[in-house]
Design a protein around this nucleic acid. Sequence first.
DNA 1: TCTTAGCAATCGGGGGCGAGGAGTGCTAGC
DNA 2: GCTAGCACTCCTCGCCCCCGATTGCTAAGA
Lengths: 350, 350
Amino acid sequence: MNPGGPGGLDKRKAYILATVVYEYIATAEPVASQTLTQKYHLGVSSATVRNELADLEAGGYLVQPHTSAGRIPSDAGYRTFVDQLMQPETLQAADRRRIRDELRDASRELDEVIESATRLLGRLSKNLAFATKPSNDAQTFRHLQLIWLSARTGMAIVVTSMGVTAQSLFELAVDAGPDELTRLSNALNSRLGNKMLRDIRESDVAAAVEELGLAGEFKNVIMTALRSARSGEQSTLAASGAQNLLDQPEFQDARKLRSILNIVEEQKTLYDLVADSMTAEAPAVKIGHELGVDEMNDFSIVTVPYRFGESAIGMLSVLGPRRMPYARLMALASGTAETLSSRLSDAEIK
Amino acid sequence: MNPGGPGGLDKRKAYILATVVYEYIATAEPVASQTLTQKYHLGVSSATVRNELADLEAGGYLVQPHTSAGRIPSDAGYRTFVDQLMQPETLQAADRRRIRDELRDASRELDEVIESATRLLGRLSKNLAFATKPSNDAQTFRHLQLIWLSARTGMAIVVTSMGVTAQSLFELAVDAGPDELTRLSNALNSRLGNKMLRDIRESDVAAAVEELGLAGEFKNVIMTALRSARSGEQSTLAASGAQNLLDQPEFQDARKLRSILNIVEEQKTLYDLVADSMTAEAPAVKIGHELGVDEMNDFSIVTVPYRFGESAIGMLSVLGPRRMPYARLMALASGTAETLSSRLSDAEIK
DNA sequence: TCTTAGCAATCGGGGGCGAGGAGTGCTAGC
DNA sequence: GCTAGCACTCCTCGCCCCCGATTGCTAAGA
């Protein structure tokens, strides 16, 4: 390969590829050699550029919709652009402030903060934003409270470090008084404190129930509450901004959109698509066919994990046409995820 | 006016109008006089039908997209159809069962039940379904629990008759022990029990706090929790099935959809549109311009209130093209709302 | 008075055609 | 290696025209 530059491209080819991508992202029209010489001072004639473009096409970076049209980037072209050519962006202070302010006003509830962040990202990115909600499995147990409602009914409330409260109504076969419930709550709290939800065993609970000499059904009530706390939100998504996609010239015909909206509504596919970006440090980008789903060949996704304390607990993504402003969306997604992370950590229940 | 039938229409005109609407709903194509004589045994020739169609057009019930096309219903035509001509539908036992089964499996949480019902209605109706979430104002207070998390932090949980739990984290300026919180919880519960949330006064809370000789800041903590319980969900919507609209031939051009999706995302407009149907007994239908929003002239909405106990607490609606199967959607919406209502009442916390 | 057959008139949709133009690839010369 | 020039390709757009669908009207018949 040509050692003159990244990806086997010499400097000029790389620059031309970058301008083609920039131009196509901006205009959604195939880019002609003359456009390039006119808008960018390449210092060479359009004929030279044509030669370079032909080379880039041969190298698989560009494609031509038809013979007498300009070039548009291929998936590989976008990939090279994203990995090596584009100028990374950082957020303007104004954007950063706006994100912070909007998320500050959001409720403190986990779900709602995540939904706010998704809506915000959808609005700022002018694309479809979505977020996976954290599995509660890895959360830390903070408190369990049994609330007495009547002699045989009550409610179990589980509070975790993320402030999630799972509620679970229960009915008993035998009468119980408020005091019993309080004592059982206390016993459980001292035993279970600071365990991760997934590490709580039935035997822990059984021991507490026995210690107080209570009926075995309490154990089931508690386990049900804990299970519902664990399973909450599993692999569900928040999404926002679908109608932004309708603005894109490439989706005017509504058919392409249908498939994508179905995928968004189904959630499962989308979840799988971004799941492997959970551990990534930087924003992860998947372009067109890299998504591995036929209906999504015209789309790209930018994904950033968000954190609670040290560990990544979910992903925030932007889905848009392959012709998306990658640098900007990566900056926006990162910024939103960062703010979301610190917002969540602020609200931690210690 | 012609006294021969409903709305000033004689029997034959009424029948012809009804068939035009049926046919247009089924085909999305302007309906020709010949189509009518062929598909429906009118017993007269197409020329006669043409005369009748001309009369109906003069009466404002039909319009012609252009001279050499068939007729399509006007808003007034649909209105007459809905009010007087169409055959009301009732749900098949199978549909009814399906609704019941799907909602039974849904979580018992208020929000999620409503969202499930909305999703289900979107799926069954093949249109966009949305629901207003109930204001918590009119809910009955059942229980307040102060949870001790650390010497100066805690969580207040409010349980209402609808099973809604509002949570509210608080911080205290002075230390408090678990016992104090428990005693305060008890004092509050005995004072506030069975009041409507909106009827709880600050003085009720203050009295309980004073009775136990606790610091005044407890009053604020409790009031905050109660306020957050009251304000939860205010005028927010659940929506589902937007991509169904993409299937409709009249929305292939994506532009019409944008405006509608914007409106759905904004929520406020939509909320206002259906708000006045809250007190209706039967399904309320708004057709095209009756919605009073220019961008929605091509749409209709069917709205049904759902109940908790005796009182209507929210609305379940279907939004689709004017050319919607009104009778079926009214049946579906009613059926879903009914099931939702009984589901909610079953889960009442007494 | 209502109905109907027949018919001219109207208008949109679609196909074909050709001009225009954008853009390329190639060649030859610098 | 670069570039001017040019032939070639192929898409787009507008135009026209035809066809078909459907109507409204007229005049005759029940």
